[in-house]
């Protein structure tokens, strides 16, 4: 498969669009369908496609395994940290209204933050699982 020119060129063309679409789904989740879970899976799909066509070593130069495995707990920490900010400011856990001057603006910001946490955890978990499976097979 590594010698297939059509696949290599096609995937090279399509991966930037996959990543941008992932970001669109993430950041536009406030207005359209989408959110952290979907965007995370799309971003992970882009990396996994790259790994499938160009080999796992090339993919690990883009997304090293150490980095991916570091990002798995980081996403959870972003989510939990957003909650703890509310806790430290005298509100309930995961109460976002303290993140900005007005409560609605703060809640919007909180939603963005926790969705970022979801994105990081989901994408890196999927990539890490793929790495684990494919390295085991060798």
């Amino acid at each position: 498969m590594r010698l297939d020119v059509v696949l290599r060129v096609g995937v090279k063309l399509i991966i930037p669009f996959m990543l941008v679409f992932g970001l669109y789904v993430q950041l536009h989740g406030d207005y359209g369908p989408g959110g952290g879970f979907q965007a995370g899976v799309i971003v992970a799909g882009a990396i996994i496609t790259y790994a499938l066509i160009f080999g796992i070593e090339e993919a690990q130069r883009v997304a090293p395994r150490k980095l991916v495995e570091f990002l798995v707990p980081l996403g959870v920490l972003i989510y939990a940290g957003t909650g703890v900010i509310g806790l430290l400011s005298g509100q309930n856990f995961l109460d976002y209204s303290v993140l900005a001057a007005h409560a609605p603006a703060g809640r919007e910001r909180g939603i963005l933050l926790v969705e970022a946490g979801v994105l990081v955890t989901v994408a890196s978990t999927m990539i890490a699982l793929f790495y684990a499976f494919s390295e085991r097979g060798r």
Partner: peptide
């Protein structure tokens, strides 16, 4: 009005039901 987020699904998932979503992230993790 309360969250400035037009997609109600996102508002419910990440704000009103944030604990559940947090649990889901923990499950994935």
């Amino acid at each position: 009005k309360e969250t400035q987020v037009a997609n109600v699904v996102s508002a419910v998932l990440a704000d009103y039901r944030s604990f559940d979503t947090f649990g889901e992230v923990i499950v994935v993790f």
